[in-house]
Simulated assay, not measured.
Amino acid sequence: MPLISIVTPSYNPVPDHLLAAYESVRSQRLPDGWDLEWVIQEDGSTGAAMEILPPDPIVTFATGRRGGVALTRNLALARSGGELIKNLDHDDVLMPDVLMRDIGVLAADPLVQWTTSRVLDLLPDGSTVAFASDPPGGRLEPGFVYDHWRANNYRLPVHPTTICVRRELAVALGGWMGIPGSDDTGLLVPASVISHGWFHSEVGLLYRKWPGQETARTEHYAALEWDLRMRLVAERAEAVRALWPQVTT
């Protein structure tokens, strides 16, 4: 039976946030014949996520030494068994039927190697705000994401945290990039230069904005580190494009 794996890094989770993520995973519908696992990897060894969530056969946990979000995400990838890999942060919420749409496109079109979805920011008061630069729904040609990103001061046209990617491509690229922040950009951008993607115009994720999130920290936007991260992501994308053929099957 084909399997889609949701991979989630976890560190010091807020119970209400993690439970909301769990309910959003549990409510997903899948195409006939598909199965689902949720692989949670703790960045540390407290067991906090396991204590918060109820026992569930689709959910697996593991702990380990502290390594940061990118390395933790990659350990979850290593533990997963799915041919499709869906990212979910422990404070975000999947929207209904997003997995149905992801699987539907990737199962039907072998040219498409990854999907992304429309996002709404979820604010602390419960209101939502739309992401500003959504492209039209449908297939994204190789280079589209990268060219937009370079031309718009490293602003992506799609949200990288919504990615669902074929396992072989994710592993071949080294998984999420080992940098202190923007690790999802470091996977999406190189993937986008050598393969076709897909953008779902339906909302696929509520991206929680709250003071405790990693991207709310001032260090995340420190000019020198930000520039170094973006330069390395761009160099990785250029190297991938120069050395690898475009993925066509």
Rank of each mutant, 00 (worst) to 15 (best):
G197Y: 06
E225G: 02
G67A: 15
P57H: 15
R229V: 04
R29V: 07
S24Y: 13
G126K: 03
L36A: 12
D89P: 04
Y154V: 06
R139F: 07
R79A: 12
S195F: 01
T8D: 01
W226F: 09
T116C: 14
T60D: 05
E168R: 04
A237Q: 02
S182T: 02
V193K: 02
D97H: 00
R241A: 14
R229M: 06
P15W: 04
T218N: 05
P136A: 15
D56C: 14
G67W: 03
H196L: 03
D184W: 00
P180D: 11
V98D: 06
P190E: 09
M230L: 10
R29W: 04
G197K: 01
P57L: 13
L30M: 10
T215C: 02
S10C: 15
A108N: 07
G178T: 08
L99V: 09
A49I: 07
E37M: 12
W210Q: 06
E219W: 11
Y11K: 12
G197R: 00
E37G: 13
T162Q: 09
V233F: 04
R150C: 12
A107V: 01
A234M: 10
Y22C: 11
P180H: 06
A49P: 09
L122I: 06
M230K: 14
R166P: 01
N74C: 04
L106C: 10
L120R: 12
N152F: 12
P157T: 10
D91A: 09
L94I: 13
D35S: 15
V247A: 07
D227F: 14
V105Q: 05
I163H: 02
W149I: 06
H159C: 07
D121N: 05
N12R: 11
T46A: 12
P9M: 10
T161A: 12
A242F: 05
I103L: 07
V189R: 00
L243Q: 04
G47E: 05
R217C: 02
T72E: 00
H90K: 03
M50V: 07
S5H: 13
H196P: 01
G204M: 11
H148L: 07
